[in-house]
Write a protein that binds this DNA or RNA. Structure first.
Lengths: 113, 113
DNA sequence: AAAATACTTAGGTCAATAGCTAACTATAGG
DNA sequence: CCTATAGTTAGCTATTGACCTAAGTATTTT
């Protein structure tokens, strides 16, 4: 069930950069080649390629080369695994409030003065 | 609406570390003091304090000092803002599949052989 | 075949991160 | 008042990260 644990470090790290988040955002709208993805970013190609490599090593992006062109697509599963972590925390947080809630209800019931 | 944008870098960066994610996870279950949070981590206190500072600067954690003790609590809003980013991407990704889906449906309708 | 395109590799700089120890400050408890 | 506790500050080191330029490879395109 928690197979995804231990792989979150590289995913969060990959997403902690605006260039890389923009790439993910772009790829969520469809596949693209490296140079197409790179165009909006004011950066030398080798620098940009490193960002793609970081995303790929995090498992967020899958690439394949066809001729001299490299195509990239998003691996949505990885993104979902990461989102699941947030859901976990939110549940813990909320159940804490639920407990607090019932505690308050009990106190009110016990001290109706 | 997208007030949270531009603040995601430090949040993702903060979460790209297992120690800090463990702290968030712990705080989701309730407030705690710095030394209580530090106990499970095999690390010198000053090192651990830096992690807390990173979380605090990312806005994920709020601290207050009472006497010689510093109490920490989670700022769930920041966590939620981050989770919202994933939801955004997922929506874009899904709507892309919806489009593909209706395209396929159209093709099937148009070519019943 | 020559030239343009789309990466790739190599190597270098500079700043930021994660960790440490040692020494200090400010409470709390006895 | 003295000691233990809880955190803080300062300063050092090693690694990683984000860029760059220059030069190389592999594929089209002309």
């Amino acid at each position: 069930m928690d197979n995804y644990r231990g792989q979150l470090d590289p995913v969060f790290h990959a997403l902690a950069d605006p260039t890389r988040r923009a790439v993910v955002q772009q790829l969520a709208r469809g596949e693209a080649t490296v140079s197409h993805l790179a165009k909006p970013h004011a950066m030398a190609l080798p620098s940009f390629m490193k960002h793609v490599a970081v995303l790929e090593q995090a498992g967020l992006v899958v690439t394949r080369k066809s001729g001299r062109v490299r195509h990239c697509r998003l691996n949505a599963e990885r993104l979902a695994a990461c989102e699941a972590w947030f859901a976990d925390q939110r549940l813990a947080w909320q159940s804490r409030f639920d407990q607090l809630d019932s505690l308050l209800t009990e106190l009110q019931a016990g001290e109706p003065t």
